[in-house]
């Protein structure tokens, strides 16, 4: 990175670290932080929309749909989320490959499950065997995002379902008295008001989502945990210009601090959002805000 980095052995402590921390592998390490942020940015809205659909389904007056929604919410209860992660990553992959197999190779006669193997025709493989490395990585990341969205979508559905039920019934009755249809009541009265009730749950969920991001490591993504283990391990001078002992502890301490920072910033941000959303609401917090402004 810097011009004086050509011969690290001769450098003083400060310069040594400035070279060490900016070498090529560390850039991959920093890039993996971007991966985490991208995962959060993509997963949060997708999971929220999964949750919204799930909550709508659970509220439905059509029993099978309501069972489906409630089942989706309930199935995630009672089972560790990490089991879901491990399950969905394989299950989704196999589901995609199986679907492609059915479409692309209709005249394939061999069974797909042969003993302990899952064999689809070569053209149905995902990604294709000939695909470049980045396609494999992107596909893995894509699977991870869907997995996260499914699991957290169920959490969000639970929260939103609670939020929808918490809206005072009088509000809905008033809407009906004004002659609004069920659909109009839902979109114009229920949805705008439910957020303030759902927000404490959703902000909790956001925190849990942040804290679930290191599980990317288990899904086979080269994420921050992967790099921290790689970079922190003992390096001898044979393989690198920057030999050092076992520093994994310090790398993970850094990750710990990174996450503490993330959650602290989110906490402050969510508090502000809550304040903003409480304005004009018929809740204790809204009442407090009203008093503050009128006093």
């Amino acid at each position: 990175m810097f011009s004086f980095c050509a011969d690290p052995e001769t450098l003083g402590t400060f310069r040594w670290f400035s070279c060490y921390l900016t070498n090529g592998v560390h850039m991959s390490f920093y890039l993996s932080f971007v991966k985490v942020l991208v995962l959060l940015a993509v997963t949060a809205p997708v999971a929220l929309s999964f949750g919204f659909v799930g909550a709508m389904a659970a509220r439905s007056h059509f029993p099978p749909l309501s069972w489906l929604g409630k089942g989706y919410i309930a199935i995630v209860r009672g089972v560790p989320d990490i089991a879901f992660f491990l399950f969905f990553v394989i299950a989704l992959d196999q589901a995609f490959e199986w679907t492609r197999h059915q479409i692309l190779c209709p005249d394939w006669t061999d069974p797909i499950r042969q003993g302990n193997d899952f064999l689809v025709c070569p053209s149905a493989k995902l990604p294709l065997g000939s695909a470049p490395e980045w396609v494999h990585e992107t596909y893995g990341f894509f699977l991870a995002v869907i997995t996260f969205a499914i699991v957290f979508g169920a959490f969000a559905a639970n929260v939103l379902f609670g939020g929808m039920r918490a809206v005072p019934h009088a509000q809905l009755e008033t809407a009906a008295a004004y002659g609004m249809s069920r659909r109009q009541t839902f979109w114009r009265v229920l949805v705008p008001q439910m957020w303030v009730y759902a927000l404490p749950g959703l902000s909790n969920l956001w925190m849990v989502l942040i804290k679930a991001t290191p599980l990317l490591f288990l899904l086979g993504i080269e994420d921050i945990v992967y790099w921290a283990r790689e970079l922190g391990g003992t390096k001898t001078s044979q393989f690198t210009a920057y030999p050092h002992g076992d520093w994994r502890m310090w790398y993970f301490l850094f990750l710990l601090l990174f996450y503490l920072g993330m959650t602290r910033v989110s906490e402050i941000g969510l508090e502000r959002l809550m304040r903003r959303l409480s304005r004009g609401q018929a809740t204790a917090a809204g009442e407090l805000l009203r008093k503050e402004t009128t006093a």
Binding site: R229, F252, L253, Y259
Partner: peptide, 17 residues
């Protein structure tokens, strides 16, 4: 404020050293 997963890793390497 921090993930349990990272806490496990940190504790393990801490105990190791």
């Amino acid at each position: 404020g921090s993930p349990l997963f990272i806490q496990f890793f940190f504790a393990y390497f801490f105990f190791l050293s």
